[in-house]
């Protein structure tokens, strides 16, 4: 039995297989609409995340399956002090597969050690969120036609952003990838990612504080939010906050084929004026999230 706890649990071949399945689902959704009839997905959300939960539920329903679960810890037995291990052993009697979101890092790994059914990590605190990374990879594949030979700009909070670290890890396994890491000094990519991933694998990268400077080189621009609470110095936040807001003016030198991604939710880091630009992919990215989750559920239930 396989689980998905960390994106690095999947080999490149397995990710390619998931992407191919997702592409086939997109091509012929009717072929898949009943394949999981009578199967049940439990969504155990110990902290609220409406969009991720709905994405999982929509994915399961689109495969002909059913869903059950809870959307916050207060409505679960965790409020009575039940352990993660006990919760999944019980829920595993009711469902065929479990998607779990938990505020504590490592909770889905604990679940996978005890669960009688496959566990999907739907986000554990600031740690891992592998289905977001799969969503990003499917989006890049669909927008660019492949996952090799890309210059990827990642902008915003590169220190705490879990989606950023997973994306760097995942993309560093493809050929001829270059990164442009755009952030204020306070929010640079941590040293262990720079040393253990980028330098170790000889992947070219550039760190810069300017969003505009490298715009013309980018094939992908992955935007994330710069949060006020991450700054020690309020005045520094006020000085920098507008530098990392993407506007049509900042896109003047960008390639016509560049793709703009964002894990959402967006606050103000991408101006709504950019939404109508054909390079804006973030709403297509949401839809891809559903398709790749469908592929993942099929794989973990060993239907494909």
């Amino acid at each position: 039995m396989k689980h998905l706890i960390d994106i690095m649990d999947l080999s490149v071949a397995e990710i390619d297989e998931l992407i191919e399945t997702a592409l086939d689902i997109i091509k012929d959704p009717e072929k898949y609409q009943d394949v999981l009839r009578h199967k049940k997905l439990a969504t155990l959300f110990f902290e609220p995340s409406t969009r991720t939960r709905l994405s999982f539920e929509s994915a399961m329903l689109s495969l002909g399956g059913s869903v059950l679960g809870f959307s916050e810890a207060q409505s679960s037995s965790a409020a009575k002090g039940e352990s993660v291990a006990d919760t999944v052993r019980v829920v595993g009697c009711y469902a065929d597969i479990i998607a779990m979101r938990h505020p504590k890092e490592g909770a889905p790994l604990v679940a996978s050690m005890f669960s009688p059914v496959p566990i999907i990590n739907a986000g554990d605190g600031g740690h891992n969120h592998p289905t977001q990374t799969l969503t990003d990879l499917l989006t890049i594949r669909r927008e660019k036609g492949g996952l090799d030979n890309l210059t990827i700009g990642i902008c915003g909070d590169l220190k705490y952003g879990r989606t950023v670290h997973s994306l760097i890890n995942a993309m560093s396994r493809y050929r001829n990838i270059r990164f442009v890491l755009i952030s204020p000094d306070e929010l640079k990519v941590p040293d262990y990612i720079i040393n253990d991933v980028l330098k170790k694998k000889n992947i070219p990268f550039k760190e810069t504080a300017s969003l505009e400077d490298s715009m013309e080189d980018l094939d992908i621009l992955y935007m994330t939010r710069v949060q006020r609470e991450r700054f020690f110095d309020e005045s520094e936040y006020m000085r920098l906050k507008d530098s990392y807001i993407l506007t049509p003016e900042k896109l003047i030198n960008a390639k016509k084929t560049m793709s703009i991604l964002h894990p959402l939710p967006r606050v103000n880091e991408i101006s709504v004026a950019v939404d109508n630009d054909e390079r804006a992919c973030y709403f297509r990215q949401v839809l891809n999230g559903k398709f790749i989750r469908m592929a993942l559920i099929l794989k973990l239930l060993e239907v494909i």
């Binding site: 352990s83 291990a85 490592g106």
Partner: peptide, 13 residues
């Protein structure tokens, strides 16, 4: 020592 780690609330792990 990570206060966000699951072991911080489930001491029997």
């Amino acid at each position: 020592r990570n206060p966000r780690c699951i072991t911080s609330i489930e001491q029997e792990l």
